[in-house]
C-alpha cells in the first residue's frame, strides 16, 4: 500500500512538472493556430485548429521575420566563431599550463559573469560610436562575444581536463609544437564539447536582447529578439501571427538543445560539480 502511494505521488509529480514546463510552449503553438474569433473568449479553446495555416499564412510577407532571422543567424554564427577561436586556446592554457597568474586569469574569466551588461552599456556605446560599430551587426558580434566567450572557455577547459596528459607527453617528445598538439590531439578528442559550447554560444547570441536593442537602431538591421519585442502591445498585428513568429524564433534553440542537452549539461556541470 505504502509503495503504491509512493508510486502514485511520484507519477503525479512527474506529470505536474512536465505540464508546467511544456504548457506555455504548447500554448504558444495553440495560439498560433487559433482564429481570432476563438481566441478572445472567457473559456479559451485548448487545442489548435489543425486544418488551417493560422498565423503562418503569408507570415514572412507581412512581417520582416525573414530579415530578422537572417540578421540573428549572422550575429549568432559570428559570435560562435570568434568565441571558439579565442576560447579554445585560452581553455588549453588554463587547463594544461602551469603559471603563476593562472588563478587570476581564471578569476577574470569568471568575473565577466558578474558584470551587469547595463553598466557596460554606456561606455561600450561610446566606444562603438568611435569605432563605427553602432548599427552594425559586426558590433553586435563583438559585444556578444565578450559575454559568451568566458562560458566557452569554462566548458572547453573542463573537457581538456579530462584528456589524459600522457597522450600529449608522447607527442611532445616526438617534437610536436604546442599548436600542433592541440590541432591533432586535443581538438578531435574534445569535439563533442566543442559542439556543445558552439550550440551554447550560438543560442546565447540568438536569444540576446539588451545589447541588440541598444546598439541597433536601424530597422533593417533588427534581429529577431528586438523585432519581436516591437510586436508587444502593438495592436496592428493579430495575436496568432505574433505567436507564429515567436514559434519560428523558438524552434531552432528547442531542437538543438533537445538534441545535445546532455552534452551541454555535463560540460557546465563538470565546472560546477568539481568546483
Amino acid at each position: 500500500m505504502k509503495k503504491l502511494i509512493g508510486k502514485v505521488s511520484i507519477t503525479s509529480f512527474t506529470i505536474l512538472i512536465a505540464f508546467i514546463a511544456i504548457f506555455p510552449i504548447y500554448w504558444m503553438f495553440t495560439t498560433s493556430l487559433l482564429p481570432t474569433s476563438k481566441m478572445f473568449k472567457a473559456v479559451p479553446q485548448l487545442y489548435p485548429n489543425f486544418g488551417t495555416s493560422g498565423g503562418y499564412n503569408n507570415l514572412f510577407e507581412v512581417l520582416n521575420l525573414g530579415l530578422w532571422l537572417k540578421n540573428t543567424a549572422f550575429i549568432a554564427a559570428g559570435c560562435t566563431l570568434t568565441s571558439l577561436l579565442m576560447g579554445i586556446f585560452a581553455a588549453y592554457a588554463i587547463s594544461r599550463r602551469r603559471f603563476r597568474a593562472k588563478g587570476f586569469v581564471g578569476f577574470i574569466m569568471f568575473a565577466t559573469q558578474m558584470l551587469p551588461e547595463a553598466l557596460l552599456l554606456i561606455p561600450l556605446y561610446a566606444l562603438f560610436i568611435k569605432l563605427g560599430l553602432i548599427n552594425s551587426l559586426y558590433g553586435l558580434i563583438v559585444a556578444n562575444t565578450a559575454f559568451v566567450m568566458p562560458i566557452t572557455v569554462w566548458i572547453l577547459k573542463g573537457a581538456i581536463d579530462n584528456v589524459p596528459y600522457e597522450i600529449e607527453e608522447a607527442a611532445t617528445i616526438d617534437g610536436c609544437s604546442i599548436f600542433k598538439i592541440q590541432r591533432l590531439i586535443i581538438w578531435p578528442l574534445i569535439a563533442p564539447s566543442i559542439v556543445a559550447s558552439s550550440v551554447m554560444a550560438f543560442f546565447h547570441a540568438w536569444n540576446e536582447y539588451l545589447l541588440a536593442t541598444t546598439f541597433i537602431l536601424d530597422p533593417d538591421k533588427r534581429v529577431a529578439s528586438t523585432g519581436l519585442a516591437t510586436l508587444i502591445g502593438e495592436l496592428a498585428t493579430p495575436l496568432d501571427r505574433v505567436m507564429s513568429a515567436a514559434m519560428i524564433y523558438t524552434l531552432p534553440p528547442l531542437i538543438f538543445f533537445l538534441l545535445i542537452q546532455k552534452r551541454i549539461v555535463s560540460g557546465l556541470a563538470s565546472g560546477s560539480v568539481k568546483g
Binding site: 511544456i22 506555455p24 519581436l228
Partner: peptide
C-alpha cells in the same frame, strides 16, 4: 520524459517567453 520536457523552458528565448506569458 522530464529531461525532454524541461528542456523547453530552458531553451526558449526570453523574448518569446515574455510574449507568450
Amino acid at each position: 520524459f522530464i529531461r525532454a520536457a524541461i528542456t523547453l523552458p530552458w531553451a526558449a528565448p526570453p523574448i518569446a517567453v515574455a510574449l507568450i506569458f
